[in-house]
């Protein structure tokens, strides 16, 4: 990995942190308000690609675990990694990786539609696929009960996937970061 890649990884870890500083939108009836933070997960994957995107999320989690309160609402430390919603956090590196993978696969013709597919599969489906079973195991509640509880986050996540897709397509045009192997112009 080049130093530039390290800087990109650190950058998206930091962007995820800054998105957590935005005030959360409280939704009546849900214990946790909707935050902009998973937008950082989606952007990391769809701008940096699989490997760097996943590493950016690992870095973010490492910094939070080290006691820097960068999660939305000023949360941080190891406590957030052992709570009932910790499964969602653990899913972030994988989510960014999957988004990045799908983005790389469609990079040559990366339209809004492909971006949306990547962000919905990686940024919504993967996160719930890990988060719901974790809550269920942790709280001794049935899978369906945990899934019902998570259902209220879906509208917010769909909006975030939409925003991330629009931004990813625009950034690709102005400052593409992903380089596909093999097709680079031959070095002279």
């Amino acid at each position: 990995m080049k130093s530039r890649d390290l800087a990109y990884v650190a950058l998206f870890a930091a962007i995820t942190a800054v998105l957590g500083l935005l005030p959360a939108v409280p939704v009546p009836g849900i214990p946790v308000p909707i935050t902009a933070q998973t937008l950082g997960v989606m952007l990391a994957g769809s701008v940096l690609g699989a490997r760097r995107g996943g590493l950016a999320m690992l870095t973010f989690l490492a910094v939070v675990a080290a006691g820097v309160p960068l999660l939305s609402g000023g949360r941080g430390g190891l406590a957030v990694f052992v709570g009932p919603s910790a499964g969602y956090l653990y899913s972030w590196p994988l989510a960014a990786f999957v988004i990045g993978l799908l983005t790389q696969l469609t990079w040559r013709r990366f339209t809004l539609a492909w971006a949306a597919v990547a962000n919905l599969v990686g940024g919504v489906a993967v996160i719930y696929a890990l988060g719901i079973p974790f809550t269920s195991l942790y709280g001794d509640v049935s899978l369906s009960a945990a899934a019902t509880g998570a259902l209220s986050f879906v509208p917010g996540d769909l909006v975030k996937a939409g925003i991330a897709s629009v931004v990813a397509v625009a950034v690709r045009r102005a400052h593409p970061v992903i380089e596909l192997p093999g097709r680079r112009p031959a070095a002279g």
Binding site: S3, R4, L6, A7, Y8, L11, I15, V171, H175
Partner: peptide, 18 residues
């Protein structure tokens, strides 16, 4: 979008400086 483009360029420069 403008924010991401700005900081991506910044990270790029930082990588070169490193």
């Amino acid at each position: 979008v403008p924010l991401l483009i700005q900081v991506l360029r910044l990270a790029h420069t930082l990588g070169e400086a490193l």
